[in-house]
């Protein structure tokens, strides 16, 4: 059992998210390119130094052109994604309008902030990425409910490694092919150097045509390119 630090009380105080070692083992990366976004995530779920799952699903579809990646406490993340999907569907049915990427991102941010102010936040970092009538979005959301639209973003214990690669290789308005390669390389680097990241990856490309998923063979081919 996890010992809550600095307390004798039986009531469990909120964890300090910075002390969540072993619960946030993950790397997810999303980048914008001209006309779409690329989203990648590994398959490893860790608990301390133990690999809890080798087939964890960290990219979740929210609608035809929006996905979210999860990192942090898996239960919290899965819970708010289920809740978001239900809220989105109810909105669509009652208003007869579809929810855009921007709306989905801000809906999640509102839920995270509401929970944060109760004193028991969801221990998650999320990326909400997709395309809507305003263009491409890569939103980074933290446990406090902040939301920022970035050119590229990464979450999880391996995000520092991924950001290193992105800082060197990312260019604004890249082609789709270039963006796929850069994003996969960023995650591949953190799979090499972060112990809590690994066991293969998912790679999704979202354009105006919808969501396309790369096969394992296509991902391997990207890594062999010069």
């Amino acid at each position: 059992m996890y010992r809550y630090p600095n307390t004798q009380s039986n009531m469990q105080p909120p964890l300090n998210p910075n002390e969540l070692n072993g619960l946030h083992g993950t790397t997810t990366v999303a980048t914008k390119f001209k006309g779409g976004v690329v989203v990648v995530a590994d398959h490893r779920a860790s608990g301390g130094t133990f690999i809890m799952s080798k087939t964890a699903q960290k990219v979740h579809k929210l609608n035809e052109k929006t996905v979210t990646t999860i990192s942090g406490l898996v239960s919290d993340a899965q819970y708010i994604i289920r809740l978001t999907r239900a809220e989105m569907r109810l909105f669509e049915l009652s208003r007869n309008l579809s929810i855009t990427t921007k709306m989905a991102g801000n809906l999640l941010a509102s839920m995270l902030h509401g929970q944060f102010r109760t004193g028991f936040p969801f221990y998650v970092h999320l990326i909400v990425a997709g395309i809507d009538e305003e263009g491409t979005h890569v939103y980074f959301l933290d446990h406090s409910g902040s939301i920022n639209d970035e050119e590229y973003a990464s979450t999880g214990s391996g995000s520092l490694v991924a950001y290193g690669v992105l800082e060197a290789l990312f260019k604004k308005e890249m082609t789709e092919a270039k963006a796929i390669n850069v994003t996969i390389r960023a995650l591949a680097a953190s799979m090499e150097r972060d112990a809590a990241t690994g066991n293969g990856m998912d790679c999704l490309i979202i354009t105006d045509d919808g969501i396309r998923e790369l096969s394992n063979e296509e991902i391997d081919a990207e890594l062999k390119k010069e």
């Binding site: 289920r82 809740l83 999907r85 239900a86 809220e87 569907r89 109810l90 049915l93 009652s94």
Partner: peptide
């Protein structure tokens, strides 16, 4: 009814 159907999915 819509809420109940989404609660079930959730």
């Amino acid at each position: 009814a819509r809420v109940e159907s989404q609660i079930h999915r959730f």
